[in-house]
Design a protein around this nucleic acid. Sequence first.
DNA 1: TACTTTTTGGGTGATTGTGGGGAAAAGTGG
DNA 2: CCACTTTTCCCCACAATCACCCAAAAAGTA
Lengths: 145, 145
Amino acid sequence: MFKGQYIYSVDAKGRISIPAKLRKHVSPESNDTFIMTQGTEKCIDVYPLDQWNVLESKIHQLNLFNPDHARFSRILLQNAFDDTLDSQSRILIPQNLLAYAGITKDVLILGVSTKMELWNPSFYEIYLNSSEESFEQIAAKVITT
Amino acid sequence: MFKGQYIYSVDAKGRISIPAKLRKHVSPESNDTFIMTQGTEKCIDVYPLDQWNVLESKIHQLNLFNPDHARFSRILLQNAFDDTLDSQSRILIPQNLLAYAGITKDVLILGVSTKMELWNPSFYEIYLNSSEESFEQIAAKVITT
DNA sequence: TACTTTTTGGGTGATTGTGGGGAAAAGTGG
DNA sequence: CCACTTTTCCCCACAATCACCCAAAAAGTA
């Protein structure tokens, strides 16, 4: 389970180091491979390979002659991009994803359960302040047991 | 599983390079052979041989005395065209398919699960904006588990 | 403080995408 | 059947990008 927040930087080539603390939680069968794609918020989602495969097996069963299925597959897959760690434990982020998330130099890396998220730090600040409900109110709704 | 989007160009002879990242996901038994045909949208579908064979076996089971089955088979097959990669990893696209998809110079190559799609970039833009439903709504319908 | 681990920066050779020339093959008309 | 044109295929070459390696700076640890 990924957790924690880390302020890192993107270098001139668009590379980002994966924090050592997060790396420790990646299962070995992922083979240092990560799939990144556009998040539902203005951020980049990064899945280790084993987590991505769960999603991929569902997509594989769809019927691409069904218009809804095809549209879903196109949108989900069009911005998906995979890469493996280099010898310095970095991955390359495509320019279009960096542009989507508004990331230029500084990047906020969040560990969120089964995936990681890459944010422009000031966008995340705005996101945190954007809800009218308090953490307590949301927590009460979400955790019911 | 094919994924990602790539902006490439068609040269004067009607050839298109298959992106290296997509090539990596083509199974060896396809022998560098691809079958392209008219897509259900205004684009060109490109199947590696092994995936085409899956589709072909489905077509084989159709009843050609059923008018719908016959029409589907005719349209899909009349524009089907196969080619193998040349030494520069390119395939030749027939002029009638390029015309159908409105592709002249720039081409958007989409990895969509078991196949690839070739789009006129501006047509794809229109397609994305043509749905009244949001991605979340479609996703909820498609992924039910 | 000395040492290890982690993060960041950059250089270089290999791969990839694009364009085009020329030989072989196929089609066309006499 | 033969010249001629057109198309198809194979090869070479260039430019841009990417993958890989080396190394320094920074941070954490004993």
